[in-house]
Simulated scan of single mutants.
Amino acid sequence: MNVRALHVLAPAPVKTGPTITAAAPAGPALPAVPVERRPPPDGYRRAIEAHRQAAPPSRVDPCIAEAVERQAAAMRELSRRAFPDPDVAADDEPAPIEQARAQRRRQADVSHAAALRRARAERTTRETRTAAAVPQSSAPLGRTA
């Protein structure tokens, strides 16, 4: 089937808002004539109907739907385990944010103490190596500056 004619349909009339009206260029005002839309040609209607008949209707496989539901339930359970609902704190207990801050401070203190121990051990090792590598003389060293 060859196309012999092509009829371009005009767009439907659009309500103009205040921003469109304000942005319109100043010029001679043309009377607003509504565009009359012609019905689509028979060939167009036939083509649309043929497409609708050829396209298979979407079918949901019950096995896939069941698998999706199982997966969603498993994800909800994992989420519930990973992010449990916080218990309501009593008035005399610190708020959850304060508990988190205190825990971070403790962790930082532990890390800081470990870093100090390591730095002291490395400094002792360096001083021991330096003392062994440099021969000790009985004469004191003089200053050059």
Rank of each mutant, 00 (worst) to 15 (best):
P40N: 07
R101D: 08
V60K: 02
P39L: 04
H51W: 12
A90V: 05
V68K: 01
D91Y: 06
R45D: 06
V60W: 10
A65N: 06
S58V: 14
E77D: 14
D61F: 13
S58M: 15
A50P: 03
P39W: 02
D92K: 07
A74V: 09
E69C: 10
R52M: 07
P96Y: 08
A82S: 12
A73R: 08
A54K: 01
D92F: 04
R101Q: 13
D42I: 07
A67M: 10
A90C: 00
D61C: 11
P39G: 02
D91K: 03
A95F: 12
I97N: 11
P57I: 05
P40W: 01
R80H: 09
R59D: 10
R70I: 07
H51T: 00
D92Q: 01
A89Q: 05
Q71W: 10
A90P: 00
A102V: 14
D92V: 08
V68W: 07
P96M: 10
R38C: 02
A54F: 09
A73E: 08
Q53L: 09
A82N: 11
Q53N: 11
D42H: 01
A47L: 06
P39V: 01
D61G: 03
A67K: 12
E49R: 08
A50F: 02
E66F: 09
D92N: 05
A47P: 03
Q53F: 04
F83A: 09
I64H: 08
R38D: 02
R52P: 03
P62K: 05
A55I: 07
R59A: 10
A90M: 04
R46I: 05
Q103N: 13
Q103S: 14
P62I: 11
H51Q: 05
D92I: 00
F83M: 02
P96W: 03
D92E: 04
R104F: 15
V88M: 02
E69W: 11
A67R: 14
A102N: 15
R80M: 02
Q103D: 15
E49W: 01
E69S: 12
A47K: 05
Q71R: 13
I64Y: 06
A54S: 07
E66I: 12
H51V: 05
I64W: 13
A95Q: 05
A100M: 14
D61M: 12
Q99W: 14
P94D: 08
A67C: 09
H51P: 01
